[in-house]
Computed example of a mutant assay.
Amino acid sequence: MIESKGTNMGWIHQDDESDHEGFVVAVLPDGTDAPRDTWEDMQEAEGCWAWSLKYDGAHDRPLAVGIRAICLCGWRGPRQRADFTDPPAAEESLRKQWYHHAEVSLSRTLPPRIQALFDDLEETLLGMAMPPARPDELDDTRPLIAIYAATLLRAHAERWQETAVRAARADYSWEEIARPLGTTKQSAHERFRESRQHTAPQEA
């Protein structure tokens, strides 16, 4: 999910508001990027990006040779045509490029909600796996159940991982998928290509 321009100047990713904030900038005739919009620019453009007003070539204003999405982290997307007849459509394409970049960049950062679940589960299972300090603590320390829970989690995790990789293939490259897997794109491709072949009959 993306929050559009509100109190912030740019696009804000729901999982990270510090390093990843997206903007649309005009590409000037000399190939450089125009400055990001100011608050006054946004007001003049009625809450939209101001490139179509400031760089349309009218009334001696400079004419943009393109537009691109950029990110506060330093990422710069590819240049695309500046469509002055339909700015919202052009901006939507750039928004999708920036969101793709942010998702890949954050693919090894757990959202706070998921991190809290991990922490709670780890604390619970490690607590169950500890030897009891006193006989009356047996109900709180159940290492056999902890073993079984860990075994189930491993089996479920492999299935969840395969499902997520299949979903990611619609929008992400093998190189991008390899990042959260912590492996190379060749290894990711070989591993999950075989997985898809084995599971394909069940999905049909």
Rank of each mutant, 00 (worst) to 15 (best):
E3D: 09
E3L: 09
S4P: 06
K5A: 14
K5V: 15
G6M: 05
T7Y: 11
N8K: 15
M9V: 11
M9F: 13
G10R: 09
G10S: 07
G10K: 08
W11R: 06
W11V: 02
I12Q: 07
I12P: 00
I12M: 08
H13E: 02
H13I: 01
Q14P: 00
D15Y: 03
D16M: 04
D16P: 00
E17H: 09
S18I: 12
F23R: 10
F23S: 06
V24T: 07
V25I: 12
L28H: 11
L28P: 07
P29W: 10
D30V: 05
D30A: 10
T32N: 15
T32E: 15
T38E: 10
E40L: 13
D41S: 10
M42D: 11
M42E: 13
Q43H: 15
Q43F: 12
E44A: 14
E44P: 03
E44S: 13
E46I: 00
G47W: 06
C48K: 10
W49N: 10
W51C: 01
W51M: 01
W51N: 01
S52A: 12
K54P: 02
G57L: 03
G57M: 04
A58F: 06
A58W: 05
H59W: 12
L63H: 05
L63W: 02
I67L: 07
I67D: 00
R68S: 10
A69C: 09
C71P: 03
L72H: 09
L72Q: 08
L72C: 04
C73Y: 04
W75I: 09
R79W: 09
R79P: 07
Q80E: 08
D83W: 03
F84E: 00
T85P: 00
D86G: 03
P87R: 00
P88Y: 02
P88S: 04
A89C: 05
E92G: 04
S93N: 05
S93Q: 10
L94D: 01
R95T: 02
Y99S: 02
H100S: 00
E103V: 02
S105G: 02
S105H: 04
L106A: 01
R108V: 02
T109E: 09
L110P: 01
P111S: 02
P112A: 12
R113D: 14
R113T: 09
Q115R: 14
Q115S: 13
L117H: 12
D119G: 15
D120P: 09
L121V: 14
L121I: 14
E123I: 05
E123C: 14
T124E: 07
T124P: 06
L125W: 10
M128L: 14
P131C: 11
P131M: 11
A133V: 11
E137M: 14
E137W: 11
L138P: 02
D139L: 13
